[in-house]
Design a protein around this nucleic acid. Structure first.
Length: 262
DNA sequence: ATGGCAGTTCCTAACTGA
């Protein structure tokens, strides 16, 4: 089973890239982030014509997540409140969370807040959001027996220095501060492991490159798009690959897709 | 120290992203 995650930076601007990529890489489930479109305007037909079932949660201009699956997903749940109740409804105003079950695996698709700048209001929101995420994933893990939880998406955090082209300023940079890393690590301490790092210790593998300063050509990137697996799934992982090919196209997303095979 | 690139909308300026 292949599951992919890809921040497309607008599904309408990236529709051709996504359809071409799916034809070459017919994964079982594709999780998209930053679709940037309200649900009635989501370009469903070109993706359904490829044989995918669509599950979407979008908003105007910003954020937005979607799941494409070759087989229908069971028990699709949108937002934190679907699991944690109305106490966290405020956290669902930004559309960043969707999940569903395929082949008995609960697949969660996340777009973690960027955080803007350390100490900003958006940064505080990012940290609060990650605290809610921990409660949300704990509930899914408690539900699953045996454990079968796969969590992917754009995490907007690089956990290790080897996930950053230049870690020299990492403590003052958004996405790499100790506080952000600790907040994500607290989530992972529930019992989730990075599929990519399970398979390689190598530095220099990135999933996002700034549009500016020819960052992709110089491979000045960050590895911030991840697949996290519960223990029983980690035993089944065959590969976890970052596909840099779409990043080479004209008008690309600034992120590359990441594919895990179980 | 700054801005650089890209997408979207209240669209030719301002915002958000990372």
């Amino acid at each position: 089973m292949k599951i992919a995650t890809w921040n497309v930076n607008s599904i309408r601007s990236r529709l051709d890239h996504v359809t071409q990529w799916l034809q070459a890489n017919p994964v079982d489930v594709l999780c998209l982030q930053e679709t940037k479109v309200v649900d009635p305007d989501f370009p469903r037909s070109p993706l359904e014509d490829l044989g995918y079932h669509l599950y979407i949660s979008g908003q105007k201009s910003y954020n937005g997540v979607a799941m494409l699956s070759r087989s229908p997903l069971a028990d699709v749940q949108i937002g934190f409140a679907a699991v944690l109740g109305d106490d966290v409804a405020e956290m669902d105003e930004q559309k960043r969370v969707i999940s569903g079950v395929a082949e008995g695996i609960r697949i969660v698709n996340l777009y973690v807040p960027n955080g803007s700048a350390i100490g900003s209001d958006k940064y505080d929101y990012k940290l609060r959001w990650l605290a809610v995420l921990r409660d949300y994933l704990r509930a899914y893990l408690a539900d699953q027996n045996p454990d079968a939880l796969s969590v992917c998406g754009d995490f907007n955090i690089a956990l290790e220095d080897k996930d950053i082209h230049d870690p020299s300023k990492r403590e003052t940079h958004i996405m790499s501060s100790d506080v952000e890393r600790a907040a994500l690590q607290a989530v992972l301490d529930l019992g989730l492991s990075d599929a990519f790092r399970h398979l390689t210790d190598e530095a220099g593998h990135f999933s996002w490159w700034d549009y500016r300063t020819a960052a992709f050509r110089r491979n000045r990137g960050w590895r911030i798009d991840h697949h996290y697996l519960s223990p029983s799934l980690l035993k089944r992982v065959k590969s976890c690959v970052i596909d840099v090919e779409p990043r080479k196209l004209e008008k690309p997303s600034d992120h590359a897709p990441v594919i895990v095979e179980l």
